[in-house]
Design a protein around this nucleic acid. Sequence first.
DNA 1: CAGATCACCTGCTTGC
DNA 2: TGCAAGCAGGTGATCT
Length: 241
Amino acid sequence: MPELPEVETIRKQLHSKLIGKQWQGRKIVNIRRRAKLLLIDFSDKSSLVFHLKLTGQLLFNGVPGKYTRAVFNFDDGSNLVFNDARKFGWSKHIQNSQAIEKPFGIDALEITLTELKAVFVKKKRTKIKTVLMDQKQLAGIGNIYSDEILFSAKVRPDRLAGTINSQETSKILASVKAILKKAIERRGSSIEYYLDALGQKGDFVSLHRIYHKKQCGKCGGRVERLKINGRTAHYCPKCQQ
DNA sequence: CAGATCACCTGCTTGC
DNA sequence: TGCAAGCAGGTGATCT
């Protein structure tokens, strides 16, 4: 599930709830996101790190259930429940988060036009959807948002990055920022499992225009599917070139 | 080396 | 209805 907007939503909510609480004698001083990782930083410089993969949930004051993998209890009686139906997600407590944060590229919300152009040059022989989802190049975008971004920018997902011209690169960059920001405002996309840290579904699915759609959100034409890098890409052959 | 494919695990949907 | 196959928000290992 969670891509950048979902993890960012959880980060913001946990930031407002957890700062100052104690866990195993350590005080929580910050809640951060790096790519799709969520990091809880403690006063002793250690960090509790989560990756929610496809079906992970992090619930503040949640009630443990069938899919609960871990419960973190705080000094004041509150908790954080980690659920994950498919068990792909993980959490670990580490002494220094530097190494775990290192492999990722520039955050998709922060990347500049110059930096995005450089990524497309470096990965010119790779399909554009794969490049957008490559966490080492730019961090945070997954299958849902890459489809929505490329639809908004009117670019077919199977184009090679090297064929994307300057004007299209600018449109892709604008779409990255606009769609991710809008999705954060709507607290992410709840397809099946995703819930925010307060147990609420995200609203952004109602604004999806191509992902998991049968009809194009612009022209009403039939949405086509392709397998790209093992993932299902959705696109409109009329609106995307 | 880079890009494509498989494997991880479980549950829901689809089609015979 | 029953059951097998297909599909799912991610990513690291293994192939070609």
